[in-house]
């Protein structure tokens, strides 16, 4: 084993391969858990899109952490991993948040002409209710005379 850094221990043996198979099985289980919100066993009390999506993102973050820690070897690395990951994570989160005021709220000041030609607004409910709600919403939104 060769490395240009005498302090580099990543090429040393850290035990057998069994742990990687265990992590893989855990990842497969978590992937299946992503569909748990679709099953009939999902608690009725938690039957909200926001809760379901939060659950899915928690599952995804858990999978990501397992891949980063074990497959990408960070579990056995020194403290430099915090220097790398924490600023990058903060910047990523900051990047998303900075888009919210401009792009996320772009429809708050949408023009009348834009609202006439864009798709009808949906509510938080299931897409199945879209068509029924669309007619009602358009009746209140498009109260001005139609344009042709």
């Amino acid at each position: 084993m060769t490395t240009d850094n005498p302090l580099d221990h990543s090429l040393e043996d850290h035990g057998g391969n069994a742990k990687f198979f265990v992590i893989f099985l855990a990842l497969c289980f978590l992937t299946a858990m992503s569909f748990f919100t679709y099953s009939s066993y999902w608690p009725r009390a938690l039957d909200s899109d926001s809760i379901k999506r939060t659950f899915m993102m928690v599952v995804s973050c858990t999978k990501a952490i397992l891949v980063i820690l074990f497959f990408m070897h960070l579990w056995w690395e020194a403290n430099w991993k915090y220097v790398l990951t924490i600023p990058a994570s903060l910047m990523s989160l900051f990047l998303v948040l900075m888009l919210v005021p401009d792009v996320g709220f772009r429809l708050d000041n949408a023009s009348r002409e834009r609202r006439l030609h864009m798709a009808a607004e949906q509510t938080e409910q299931e897409p199945a209710d879209h068509h029924e709600q669309t007619d009602g919403e358009e009746e209140t939104e498009n109260s001005e005379p139609k344009e042709h």
């Binding site: 910047m91 990523s92 990047l95 998303v96 888009l99 919210v100 792009v103 996320g104 709220f105 772009r106 429809l107 864009m118 798709a119 009808a120 607004e121 949906q122 897409p127 879209h130």
Partner: peptide, 18 residues
Amino acid sequence: AGLLGTYIVLRFGAAAWP
């Protein structure tokens, strides 16, 4: 992160989404 963030913001700020 930029691409995913853009998707998230566009998706949840859209009037309608398929």
